[in-house]
Design a protein around this nucleic acid. Structure first.
Length: 258
DNA sequence: ATGGCTTTATGCTAAAGA
């Protein structure tokens, strides 16, 4: 089974890229983030064999999980909200059930600038995610979280660690909140069999970041223990970042046995 | 570099992203 995640930075602009990628890699599931608008082209995906669940809002955020049409009867929507803050209207969370596995798609808040309310919102959001993971870990079910975490886990995951000190993606409080989730028994799929530094999922549009490989690794799959046991591989597909009018992120792909 | 691009929603610029 193949599951991928891709922050597309506007599904309207990247619709063609996403369709091409689906046809080439034929994932069972594709989690998308930053849809950036109310118009989700579900008919376009249905026409090439993918159903979808999504939650969106005007102009910003928005997440969708596409699934192969053959799985239609096996996919159930669980929630399009992360519990813990009834006043949170941002479209950043989508939880689906597929057979005996739970698939969670997230667009974790960026949190910059850190001296505004955005940073406490990010930390609170991470605490809410911790609570959800903790609850799922009390059960025996397999689950995974994919998406744009807006967390640079370690020095090896960015081009210039010094430049990120103090940033919401790299601050000690962010690392502590991320580690707290990992310490529930979750593992970073990409790092299971890969210690290669400078493996990135995002390159800024500015300052020739792509050409200089000045990127960051912020799109992740976190696996519950039973999911980790099923892992065949996890890899980053850099190809779409080199296309015309690319997203600033590129897909991360997870292959599971069964 | 004070975001050096890109996108949205509107507007003739601002806000957000990371």
């Amino acid at each position: 089974m193949r599951i991928a995640s891709w922050n597309v930075n506007s599904i309207k602009v990247r619709n063609g890229h996403v369709q091409d990628w689906l046809q080439k890699h034929k994932p069972d599931f594709l989690m998308l983030q930053e849809l950036k608008g109310m118009d989700f082209p579900e008919e376009d995906f249905r026409a090439i064999g993918y159903g979808s669940h999504y939650v969106n809002q005007k102009a910003r955020n928005g997440v969708a999980t596409l699934y192969k049409s053959e799985w239609h009867d096996d996919v159930k929507m669980v929630s399009d909200k992360l519990a813990g803050d009834d006043g949170d209207e941002e479209a950043r969370y989508l939880e689906l059930a597929f057979k005996d596995i739970t698939l969670i798609n997230i667009y974790l808040p960026n949190g910059n600038p850190v001296d505004t309310e955005k940073y406490p919102y990010k930390l609170k959001w991470m605490e809410r995610l911790y609570t959800r993971v903790k609850d799922l870990r009390k059960t025996s079910q397999s689950f995974l979280i994919g998406g744009d975490f807006n967390v640079i886990p370690a020095n090896d995951d960015c081009h210039d660690p010094q430049a990120w000190l103090g940033d919401a993606l790299f601050r000690p409080e962010t690392h502590a909140a991320y580690r707290k989730i990992l310490n529930l028994g979750m593992c970073d799929a990409f790092r299971v069999n890969n210690n290669q530094a400078q493996s990135y999922t995002f390159w800024d549009y500015q300052a020739g970041a792509w050409q200089r490989n000045a990127g960051i690794r912020i799109d992740h799959f976190l696996l519950s223990p039973s999911c980790a046991d099923m892992m065949d591989g996890c890899w980053i597909d850099k190809e779409p970042r080199a296309l015309e009018k690319p997203s600033d992120h590129t897909p991360i792909v997870l292959d599971l046995a069964a």
